[in-house]
Every structure is written in C-alpha cells, then in structure tokens.
Design a binder for these strands. Sequence first.
DNA 1: ATCTATTTAAGAATGATTACGATTTACATT
DNA 2: AATGTAAATCGTAATCATTCTTAAATAGAT
Lengths: 136, 136
Amino acid sequence: MNVSIALEILKNEGFKYTEKRENLVAFFAEEKRYLPAKEVLTYMQKSYPGMSVDTIYRNLTLFRDLGILEETEWNGEKRYRLSCATDAHHHHLICLDCGRTRQIEACPMDNIPVYDADFEVVGHKFEIYGKCGACQ
Amino acid sequence: MNVSIALEILKNEGFKYTEKRENLVAFFAEEKRYLPAKEVLTYMQKSYPGMSVDTIYRNLTLFRDLGILEETEWNGEKRYRLSCATDAHHHHLICLDCGRTRQIEACPMDNIPVYDADFEVVGHKFEIYGKCGACQ
DNA sequence: ATCTATTTAAGAATGATTACGATTTACATT
DNA sequence: AATGTAAATCGTAATCATTCTTAAATAGAT
C-alpha cells in the first residue's frame, strides 16, 4: 500500500480526493507504524491549524473500511497503520511505545483444528507486544 | 477460580472482604463469560441500587491485578471474565455478542521462531472471534 | 467498644470518539 | 467556465468509557 494506490482506491469507490486526505495517507506512508488518532491530529494541525477532530476520525475509519489502513487497539485507544505492502495475510510484533511493527508470516489459524462447529468464526487477532530496539 | 479461592486471595493480599465483592465474584462465577463494566454495574445495582460506577471499575481492575479476573478489550470496551480453572496458559474463542468463550489449549508462541532479538517481548494476544451457537 | 486504614457514594473530571447543523468543496455535467 | 449536487469539512456539542475527588461509612485489628 502506498499513497497513489490509496488515492486510486478512494477514486474507484466514489470518494473524493482532497489535499488533506493525501497528506494524511502520506503521513502514514512515512511513519509505517501504528498511530493513535491524537498523534495524527497533532501532525495534521501543523499544516491545517483548524482541522477538526471529526475529519480525522471519519477519514481513519473510512480508510480502514477501504483497506488502506489497519486498525488495532490497546490501552483503550484505537491505532492505525498503513496496510502492509504484502498482500498475504500476516500478523505483527508491535512496540507498545512507538507503534513500530515487525511482520510475522505465520498465522496460528493454519495450525489449530476447528474447535467448535457450533461457533461461527468471523475473525481473529494475533499480536505480540513489546519494546523495539529504539525504545528500550 | 471460584468464589472461595477469590476471597482467599483477597484476604491473603490484605484486602478486605465485603459483601459486594463476594456478590461481584459470584456473578462472574455464574456467568463464566466476558462482561463489560456496564453490564456488571447493571447487575450489581439490582441488589445495591446506589452502587457507584467507581466501585465497579476499582474492583474490576483490582481483581484483574490479583489474577481473579482476565481482561480483554474490543469495540473500545474492556471486558472481564473469571479466570479459567485451568492453570495452564491458554487462549479463547470469544462470542462477540454475549462474551461466552471456549478454550484453546494451543499457544502460537510455542510454534513461532524468535523474530527479532532486538525486540523485547512483554506479552501477546491470540483470540478468535465469532458467534456462539446461542447467538446465531 | 474504639481506632484506623480501607472502602464506598456521589458526582465531577477526563479522554477518546461520535454526532450535528452549517458551510465549503470536488467534480461531473451543462 | 458556470452550475448543481453530493460529499467533505468545520466548529462545537454530545456521548461513552473510565478515572479522580472528597467526605462519609465500615471491616477488621487492638
């Protein structure tokens, strides 16, 4: 995922291009890590002083729904990062301090048997948490 | 985990036994599923009409710290369930509607190599989400 | 029975997120 | 290029989960 693909998706799905949206995606493309809404807001308001929180949150959830961003949450905060380039399903090691990630190719779902036929599985989450080298 | 063990832990750790605490643990022991604070509050206020949200939250986090309750969060809400009887480390299938769980004995951490020596691992999360038979 | 630290009540404060009406903007069509 | 329209944004207020505060009540020890 990168800025031009993201803008392509927006266009194809009938959403409008705005400079703010481009800057927002570009920010995620530079950072390549999980960011809370507040940090995104702070960054965006440097370029657009009056930018509303509503716009941030609306775009974050829109981009998540379009597959441009991935979402996770910890400590009662949702966080987003640009969807990884790899199309293949994968998981992450996540630094709880800065949100930086490392990919994990293996998926536990491949190795566990079906536990209950009476349970309709809709999703799963596997994340390893810690501190990256820079944050230690 | 059950009510008497929970009360034992409270006593051993120097915390006080109260009727409300016993009722709270007893509620979790009956339900055996993940419950959000609000649901716990609603239940407790049937018996104790004026019971404050603060008391609920303080006890939930205390019990989590004491290992009496397990915590997870989804949809921006923390949820708690009575710690499972099995001492062994395990994971859960979780019904997103009612919070009921099934245990998963396997842990993905047993099967993946160390991905990055420069990354200090402090924890991990593996959960499978879906709908249980009763909620379908 | 009294003392003291802990717990509780009640409400206010905080922090994240969502909702809303008014205004502005992107962009397809004239 | 001007226009119409749906979408995007703004500014603010509302909502929801959670934490804090202060004074009163209470469990358990002495």
